[in-house]
Design a binder for these strands. Structure first.
Lengths: 163, 163
DNA sequence: TATTGTTATACTCTATAACTATA
DNA sequence: TATAGTTATAGAGTATAACAATA
């Protein structure tokens, strides 16, 4: 691909030729996702609260008493990754583990009082960040984007985890 | 968000409540990009050839004689990351470094004969993979998706690297 | 014998800083 | 003194495997 053709794609420094990269959907998705992660960090203002850790807390908040293996399966995490993410929020007094009385191998995870209290706040920061990410899109365009992304993933729904 | 509302978003296991995650553009972008990476690996069939390493080779192929610092800047890499990516392709006889005669600190990077010969092949595998990723979209929808993704990134063009 | 959860270990990726060689 | 590139080192993230407790 010539420099002229690359320039047409925008978003790429026109002094160099990016080859076929600007025409690849995967490259655009990666760039957009990286932008989101960078903005997420700025918006949340605490580098330790990663998108993954936020997702863990969101899912625990929405499913009180979830088993750790279930949490791992939902988010596509390994068991150790789930353990560490829960450890993280437990160290911040946001999540607790409670042993199941009927099956004492299993531990349900719950938001603490602190976790409950501050969850709405975090959700709000994240959703405002997310709206800001697409501030250049009209409501209709945002809806279209979601539909198109879902359409891409629909054929592969079983393989796609959340992470 | 209730389970019913979450279910409406599809792509999420309806037995659990994902909270606001399914409504976030950032989450959809991350999922789509992860799907792309997973498919990329399958399509290329060589775990060592990551999207980043492919991008390096693509840019070198399109800009023969590029300085390593320029390559790093284009792709948003640190200097050591650029060094290692070039080392990788050099070990596979696809890229060579040539010292600049005028400024002997600088090394231009070039495709070798082997690199030239196999680049078209790799480009073809990658572009077929990329088309396959969006096989469920019509040509018009694919065009819309690209436009929307570019529109998201346009306000932040200066911050977005390629990686 | 299988499962839940933790710990140990290793591997990849990346980033910073220190180093060299040139300018 | 500054820059191109390499090497050293350390940190985060993740995955596998081994382990302890329980079923």
């Amino acid at each position: 691909m010539s420099r002229k053709r690359a320039a047409k794609f925008g978003l790429f420094d026109s002094a160099f030729d990016y080859g076929q990269l600007p025409s690849l959907t995967g490259v655009l998705l990666r760039k957009a996702s990286l932008l989101d992660c960078s903005r997420f960090e700025d918006a949340v203002g605490d580098k330790a609260i990663t998108p993954l850790r936020y997702s863990v807390r969101e899912v625990v908040g929405a499913n009180a008493g979830l088993q750790q293996v279930q949490l791992a399966a939902i988010l596509g995490l390994s068991k150790p990754a789930a353990t560490l993410a829960i450890d993280f929020w437990q160290s911040r007094d946001c999540i607790t583990r409670r042993q199941d009385r009927k099956d004492r191998r299993s531990h349900g995870v719950y938001l603490t009082e602190t976790g409950e209290r501050t969850l709405a706040e975090l959700q709000d920061v994240v959703s405002r960040h997310d709206r800001q990410l697409t501030v250049s899109l009209s409501p209709g365009e945002l809806q279209d984007l979601h539909k198109l992304l879902q359409k891409i993933m629909a054929p592969h729904a079983s393989e796609v985890a959340l992470a």
